[in-house]
Write a protein that binds this DNA or RNA. Structure first.
Lengths: 395, 395
DNA sequence: CAGAATTTGTTCTATTGTGAACAAATTGAA
DNA sequence: TTCAATTTGTTCACAATAGAACAAATTCTG
């Protein structure tokens, strides 16, 4: 009941007003004090104070019990959007897994589910799975489907600005499909779609290893190689959503044929596809990325060597990107990142060796593993919604 | 006399006010109507109108005679900063040439001079040349040195955010020097320093081939290879000013040693250094970039082939950058760009061949020659000042 | 060629947002 | 411990800004 009133109050906030700015900032950042809102928006503290009291009366904004302790001075009261103001959903369409998560507007994650699917799965299957889990979860937890403010969808593939999957490298049956329209049959709320690496970068930016660092590069190493470039706090998408395709830079024009149609792409050398084959052959049983890392951690020389070999090419890739972008930070993602220092250590060496800017001159480039390697894209899908909440109000 | 009054009026404009916003927009864009200012700043037309009448009274802003003709509707009156409000200077420190230009605040270029200098010239020599031409020109044209609002300096080398030349590839004797402090003995005004490619990109963005296109990549091919990435209307600088060093991406880890200390850098293949040597040997006389292009234009097969060979590697470089950034536009700069289609045509082919995103899928990437190839960096040095005029007021 | 449709620049009034001032709540220094 | 130094959140008078309304100057459309 009260929920409905809050949602109506939110809907009546006009775009561009102070209230809308405050709601937007809180949606993007989760929770903060009034003074922080004032600094972030550039508004006067007095203006924020007045608007916040109104937003508190309409129950759109709530005071969170917890106080903030930073430096000297009176601590501010932590403000956040009312968790009851609405829910948002994140979906990740991976190569062999579909992930699903529900969160509220004050950045609380309520539930996360995973579904294994066969490789090269059908769109219909994904839709069915997502529809079922959505309906069942909302019913079981007494949530109204109308409370959904938006759904973010992360896809393992290049997504154009319109929501169309450009090429079907990992999801062949999805090529050319408009994912937004596809899922509009499931969610009666705005749907935002983006590439998995872009989503992963968003998650690391908002809650992870890049919090407060508006310039960095996400570098994903898994069965594919890809990434995202964050500049000025925003992901660079490119004209057709094709930015950050690090894996498909050709490093050898006479090299093997890649699934993208070019020769000698970085992905052929820096992904873990071939190492898995080699390890499976040597160990005479199927080896996965996870088991290969486990082997390496127990000291298996072959697995360690495979990781180091891939790290060499990964480091070359970082050097290439670093020479072009020169970011202060690289975040390594993808399942390979779970091998930690086994990967990072040789990768840092390769990076230094091949990069123009050496650690001695100027600011050093740090290379770290992401905070959410296993579900970064999924969390980023939620971030997609939270970041665009302002735009969604007007719709 | 009146000049002094205008300058005082400008200095009293407080940062953040509507007047400051208007002056900033006019400084950045040259001239525009009040309605355009309103749209760009997000202010109401009425607010702009009131502020502009005041600025006109204080003679900071003037009405330019010329009217604007665009579409339907009443044409607006063109507003611009008073040319007498101040001057700004651009300096380009090239490999064998120092360029100098004077402009006023309404984007009129008053004079441009060039001085040939020996390769690997001394900082003292450059300072002497710039000081002399500055003093003499201002004296000869009855300009007060105090009218100088700012000086922009473009340098052939990587410039850190503090104004220090990081590495002395082209200007060995300047390595590690703070160029801003160096020139503070010449100019008693704010000094802004940046890399030549970044400056070139700024010039093309403001007045040239990228006008109105906030996302593009500048790709310079000369005796070195470099560039700049423009995202969201601003140049990406990188942590230590090292972004856009396309020439020093290694495309062959076993290749020849490069002057940067790495092996097989793109610059070794895509710059015109080796072609010049080969052409000189074949023609048994010293050939320059200019004369090589002239030869190619008269049909000399060797010169045409040299350009095509370099274009192949240039195209590979574009493909590499395109796969990472995916910009809608590449602007080719550097003296090699003066060969026009002789370079562009094979380069476009190589780009398509090596790039992930093919013209059929999605938005095509256009590759064009810049508008100011001979003096883009110099003009960009002035753009540096005009773009930061707002920040300079408060200083 | 005449009227419709745009777009601009200006004036006016209502209102939104600001800056100054202050009490409150903390940290750090004497 | 006590007092200075910060920083926050709130109130209030006042100034800055926006929105509506209008005349003016153009292009577009029959």
């Amino acid at each position: 009941m009260a929920v409905h009133r809050i949602r109506r109050a939110m809907a009546t906030i006009e775009a561009g007003t102070v209230a809308a700015q405050i709601v937007g900032v809180l949606s993007r950042h989760g929770g903060m004090s009034g003074a922080q809102i004032a600094r972030l928006t550039g508004l006067a503290r007095s203006t924020v104070s007045i608007a916040v009291t109104q937003l508190k009366q309409s129950r759109v904004v709530v005071e969170v019990e917890r106080m903030m302790l930073e430096g000297a001075g009176r601590p501010g009261t932590l403000l956040a959007l009312n968790p009851q103001a609405g829910t948002c959903i994140g979906v990740h369409l991976g190569d062999t897994e579909i992930q699903f998560v529900v969160a509220d507007m004050s950045h609380n994650f309520i539930a996360e589910k995973r579904f294994a699917v066969g490789i090269d799965y059908e769109p219909e299957q994904a839709l069915r799975i997502v529809k079922t889990v959505f309906e069942e979860f909302y019913k079981a937890n007494g949530l109204s489907q109308q409370s959904l403010l938006g759904a973010g969808i992360s896809v393992s593939g290049p997504v154009g600005r319109n929501g169309v999957l450009q090429r079907g490298g990992i999801l062949p049956k999805w090529a050319g499909l408009n994912i937004r329209t596809l899922f509009s049959s499931v969610f009666v709320a705005p749907i935002l779609v983006d590439n998995e690496s872009n989503c992963a970068a968003l998650a690391e930016l908002k809650w992870g290893a890049a919090r407060g660092i508006p310039e960095f590069v996400m570098f994903k190493m898994d069965v594919g190689v890809g990434g995202a470039i964050v500049n000025n706090g925003a992901v660079i998408t490119g004209v057709s959503g094709g930015a950050g395709e690090f894996g498909h830079v050709s490093i050898n024009p006479e090299g093997e044929l890649c699934r993208c149609g070019n020769r000698g792409c970085l992905e052929l050398y820096a992904s873990f596809v071939k190492p898995i084959e080699q390890l499976s052959r040597v160990h005479r049983k199927p080896i996965t990325i996870e088991s290969a890392i486990a082997l390496a951690e127990t000291g298996d020389a072959g697995a360690i060597r495979m990781i180091a070999d891939v790290a060499e090419y990964g480091g070359r890739g970082l050097a290439m990107v670093g020479t072009i972008i020169n970011p202060p930070l690289f975040i390594i993602g993808g399942r390979l990142a779970m091998s930690g220092e086994l990967l990072l250590s040789p990768m840092r060496k390769a990076f230094e060796r091949h990069s123009l800017i050496k650690p001695q001159d100027g600011a050093p480039t740090s290379i770290v593993v992401g905070k959410f390697t296993e579900n970064d894209s999924l969390l980023g899908a939620v971030a997609l919604v939270l970041d665009n909440q302002q735009a969604l109000i007007s719709t």
